[in-house]
Nucleic acid binder design. Structure first.
Lengths: 192, 192
DNA sequence: GCGATATGTTTACGTCGATAACATCGAGCG
DNA sequence: CGCTCGATGTTATCGACGTAAACATATCGC
């Protein structure tokens, strides 16, 4: 609906329409195929090759969008996390994103194309920087880079383990509580 | 070589041969397909359906093997980790496994089949228990379950981020050092 | 207006997972 | 010993996929 389908032959803005359709399918849980996207948009499959060199390129574009959305989610609640509790909520938001849009999340991190897609690298960097800045605020005495990696790994691991059913929870709220508990357990180490 | 190929018609022990071939391909970096496995073993593709209900069942069997191998790796160096440093090496071993056998690691955790495969659930549980016991030894005052989840998430996240190129390192030794640094940074929080 | 260029289409190839129908072997019973 | 039956292979086939080639059409610069 967002983009037009002008003449009978040419589409108008196929690239955007294809991305939108693919994103919608990904979120609807339909495992997407190039052909399915083409079908959805009402165009022949090879037409997509005018706008994406191959399937991976389409995925890469989706991944870029996803990374931006993730960043937006992370900064929405706490623009600049400054307390340990804020950090915990950052992890909660990260895992919640993964569980709300699992297929997209998978594409974001599994799809190869690291070089090549400059916007995507930038989006990923911004997430990393957000984390690093937060760590610096919360733990000024610590190594911010190492802490950022550790925190990212924690959240990313939680996200993957829950997505893949290796950790179980009845509801998304329960997942959030588990993430909080695990995070709290780490902080409580200082009492040992 | 491990299993025989008796008569011209019947294979002898196709199930084992198929698993071995699939595992070898997975570790060689060849993305494996049911048909490719059949080709490798010298048998027609549908023959495999006599031994695996579908592709996922084959993957599930590989995953079970992989989980056992991972557990063996984790317990090889430190049978019962008792110090914080031991925990760090556990994480290092976990990530090293993922980077040494990435395709297998992916199958182990991405492949669905959680119920159904009892041996596999058991293998996963043993890893979880190993972690929990270690946490109890190292941090007797902490919540062992929450700490085990947190530690697993940390190691699993590191593994995935390095596998997917989201964290970069020149060599596997460098990866190990990064994991150690990140782990140390967490422990150093108590000094903040 | 007209031709180059961008953007579609049809057709086709090879691969994949999966099913159905048929072939062959080995074990156990007469 | 010979026959049948069940386990385990085979061939033939289907529909879906990614992708390339050759062809068609619409749009834009002159």
């Amino acid at each position: 609906m967002s983009t037009s389908a002008r003449s009978g032959y040419h589409h108008g803005d196929l690239r955007a329409a294809a991305l939108a359709a693919a994103m919608r399918m990904l979120e609807a849980g339909e495992s997407f195929s190039l052909r399915a996207v083409a079908r959805e948009v009402g165009v022949s499959a090879p037409a997509l090759y005018r706008h994406f060199t191959d399937r991976d390129a389409l995925e890469s574009a989706l991944a870029t969008e996803g990374l931006r959305d993730l960043l937006a989610d992370l900064t929405a609640d706490q623009p600049t996390p400054a307390t340990a509790a804020d950090l915990g909520e950052l992890a909660v938001a990260y895992v919640a994103f993964a569980l709300r849009r699992p297929a997209l999340f998978r594409v974001m991190f599994t799809n190869a194309c690291d070089e090549g897609n400059e916007q995507r690298v930038e989006a990923a960097d911004q997430i990393h920087q957000l984390l690093q800045a937060a760590m610096q605020l919360v733990f000024p005495a610590g190594d911010p880079s190492a802490l950022a990696d550790a925190g990212w790994a924690f959240a990313h691991g939680m996200a993957n383990l829950y997505m893949d059913g290796k950790l179980a929870a009845a509801s998304n709220k329960e997942v959030a509580q588990h993430v909080r508990s695990a995070f709290a357990a780490i902080l409580a180490i200082r009492d040992s």
